[in-house]
Amino acid sequence: MRTCVESFEAYILRALGRDHGATLLPRGLDITFCDQAFLIASGLIWNVYLAGLAIAIGFGLAVAVAVGKFSDNPLISRPAAAFIFVFRGSPLFIQFFFFYSAFVLLPRQGIEIPLGFVTLTANTSALTTAQVGGLLVLVLNTTAYSAELFYGALRTIPRGDLEAADAYGMSGLTKFRRVIFPSMLRLAWPSYTNEAIFLTHSTTLVFLSAFPARQQSGEAFYYARYFVDQTFNPFVAYPLVAAYFVLLTLFIVGLFGLMNRHLNRHLPRERRRRIRFRPQYIR
């Protein structure tokens, strides 16, 4: 049996791969409570990585898609609406499978993209890993969901704000940067917080679907499932992973709450928008 310190050293970074800690995962009767606690905690590295990057990249894309859907030009608004419909109307779980099986079909040596003066070689083999391919699917998914939220916010921007911007002689990009974008963000922020929470929770699906966990380095729920398979006892690993996710959720709520305060700082206290925690995890 390992002591707690030993299993901390062996497993706290194990999710990064075989070279970081013990080569093999604990098996069968050798599993201690500390093993479960630390190995599942190390899996959180990937949850944070996937969720953090997907939200950061998806945010920019979502603003673009939302503005696109709001556009008067049907050549722009139709494709944006179709993109949102496809990714919101189908299960994320199926999207993972679909994109993974599409990525494996790409040629392994990479695709050469001629740009005239240089030839870029797109690294396609990376797309079959969860860290790149899975992240890409998550980005597309969160882009669609957040774009719908931002689109709804764009529609509810007070008319007075827009008229005031016009009265100041603002137009085009200045009006967007100074008036439309901040108002949209402020209106959408409470639901965007929930979106960030759902996305963090759906990172648990990455390794459960098609993407393989190379060298047994997976995210927290992958390890929880591993332990339940090994010990046939669901009453330790699953509550542990649930507790970690509750902590992660509280962290996100805190972080986004600070931003919410910043966005609402100019408003009288009773008109400020509150963040209500309304979790609905599946997508």
């Binding site: 929770h201 648990t204 996710f245």
Partner: peptide, 16 residues
């Protein structure tokens, strides 16, 4: 039920 990721519930409930 609403505060815990539902995947955990889907896996936990049938075994438990």
């Amino acid at each position: 039920v609403r505060g815990v990721p539902d995947i955990v519930f889907f896996m936990f409930v049938p075994i438990a």
